[in-house]
Design a protein around this nucleic acid. Structure first.
Lengths: 197, 197
DNA sequence: GATCGCATGTAAATGGTTACATGATTCG
DNA sequence: CGAATCATGTAACCATTTACATGCGATC
């Protein structure tokens, strides 16, 4: 399970609250793994029990309680070990291609509606990721800027290289998804025009 | 959740036992959704409670009990409705690219080991899918042959077209994964040679 | 003072994995 | 007769989703 590890990788950058982790995972583009807020709070709870993170309570404003989470040495080690382990692949789940393989069950209009929503979704994702890749390279990206403050210059450069490359590749994957959906769109036209109309 | 729907789509072809469904999902290439045997038996149980499938008990050999599952009309309708619904996307999970973005945490040797395993895995998948695509077109593919026996000729041709196209596209996706991993392999070399050696 | 965003959680239900358990049939 | 494969399931656990619940802080 990588939800814990992606949380650890956030806390490696800087101590954060659960809310900030959730924000960085949803609104900023951290595009390799998603998690909901309640999932994060639950994970943090169990990580605290396993001594992977520590909390520090502080007050924001008058009386608003804020829990700040810090990665422990155990947590840091766990994170390093995880990178050196074999990758745990997840079960194959291709909802869009699964749908497309049953195209004979719907009409052209229904098909185009589904396909166009798909294109829009991944077009947007691709654009965001391409922008994020650029921002990492030019050091405008929020999380990378935070990291640059807590990391020696030489090491930071390496991290920046690795991240920028990975973001470029995940952007390429989103692009592929868009191109694929466009091919499927073309196919739908020929599929429904043959002897149906 | 699509696990139930992929089971229904199997039963649409022909009545089957839980074991046969599991086999068709794992050994034959049904590459859009995966499920374990126990997941399938559990799903079938709840589908029976919801009247989506019916069972018929029979004896194989001397005393071996076999449960054969058949899709009910309710189940058939549920399957058709599902295709016409919006796609339920699953959470983003990119374990390989996630790993690659933390490349600075390992050595070149470790990186190559992970990358080469990835390439092998998806190379194999791509080859299988390319072969399956061909077999669907030439009507050598087991599940399609079964279907051709229970479906009117015109309708079968349409189904064959849709499946062959979708299989071709999922093969293309596996190919993309291989090409991407090769780029990451290249990157790893340059990443670790720069001022490290 | 109302609304929106910050902040933290719990509870119930569902979905999925891993391990266990059992027994029959087929084929070499 | 032993091994592989056919066949069906349960139990415990873990992961995830959805819905609920609460209250502070900033700003208009």
């Amino acid at each position: 399970m990588s939800t814990k590890h992606i949380i650890m990788s956030m806390l490696e950058i800087a101590p954060m609250t659960g809310y900030e982790i959730a924000q960085n995972l949803s609104t900023s583009v951290v595009p390799f793994w998603s998690a909901t807020a309640s999932q994060i709070y639950n994970a943090l709870k169990s990580m605290k029990e396993n001594n992977l993170v520590e909390t520090e309570n502080s007050i924001r404003g008058e009386k608003m309680n804020v829990e700040q989470y810090t990665l422990t040495d155990t947590g840091r080690k766990e994170l390093d070990d995880w990178i050196q382990d074999d990758i745990q692949y997840i079960p194959i789940r291709e909802p869009f291609l699964l749908w497309s393989s049953y195209m004979e069950k719907c009409t052209l209009e229904q098909a185009l509606s589904v396909i166009d929503k798909h294109i829009e979704k991944f077009e947007k994702r691709a654009r965001q990721l391409e922008e994020a890749t650029y921002k990492i390279q030019t050091n405008e990206y929020k999380l990378m800027k935070m990291r640059s403050e807590s990391t020696p210059k030489e090491k930071f450069k390496k991290i920046q290289m690795a991240r920028a490359f990975a973001y470029g590749e995940i952007a390429a994957k989103a692009r592929f998804e868009v191109e694929q959906a466009k091919r499927i769109r073309q196919f739908a036209y020929s599929f429904f025009s043959e002897n149906d109309l």
